[in-house]
Simulated scan of single mutants.
Amino acid sequence: MTITTLKDLYVDQLQDLYSANRQAIQVTRELKEAASSAQLRKALTAGVDGIEEGMDHLKTLIENHDANPRGEHCKGMEGLAAEARAHGVEADFSDEDVRDASIIAQYQRMTHYGISGYGTAAAFARRLGLENDASVLAQCLEDTRSGDTHMTQIASGEVNPAAAEA
């Protein structure tokens, strides 16, 4: 696809986000299975649900612009997902609390990619006068930020103090 206009770039960014979410959802499930903290497992389950909801919204927005949701492959998330697997699932940890701390760090890296993507797409939508799109994307952004804040609370309140004892 040749990107000529801001709208072309906007649709490309939506497709990138959709691809990023497709990749993040799988690794988030894997991180949940590797986590030992019940609170962290619950938060990762909520993360999967939130990613699915975001994907549904993105799919609708993309299709409303006569584009294919799978029209892009997000190489950025590909790298983040590989890192999350390597440092949260496959690494050899001698302490489960340290693994949980690593899982949170990896999950938050992926989340921050989503925050950046949703914020950028929402700004493009507003500039293009696509107020409905902007509203949907702003809600996705807020939901993603909320999940990130919740992970920080889990890290600060339970996981990191326990990992520091290892």
Rank of each mutant, 00 (worst) to 15 (best):
T144F: 15
T149S: 10
V159Q: 01
A24Q: 07
A125D: 02
R29L: 14
A121F: 09
Y10L: 02
E53Y: 11
K42W: 10
T28W: 15
E131K: 12
K42I: 03
E158H: 09
L80V: 06
T60N: 05
D12N: 14
E96A: 12
G47W: 15
R41A: 12
A20K: 04
V11D: 00
L128A: 00
R70Q: 10
G79T: 00
R145V: 04
C74V: 06
T4W: 10
A82H: 06
T5A: 06
H57D: 15
A34Q: 07
T4N: 07
V98E: 02
E33N: 13
R145N: 08
L128M: 01
L17S: 00
T111K: 15
A35N: 08
D148N: 10
R70L: 07
V136F: 14
E52Y: 13
G88F: 12
A20D: 00
G88Y: 11
M55V: 01
S135M: 09
P161F: 02
H87I: 05
V27S: 03
A164T: 04
L17C: 00
V98G: 11
R126I: 14
G129P: 10
H65N: 01
A155T: 03
T4I: 06
G71L: 09
G76A: 06
G157Q: 11
Q13N: 12
Q106D: 01
A155V: 07
T152L: 09
D95M: 12
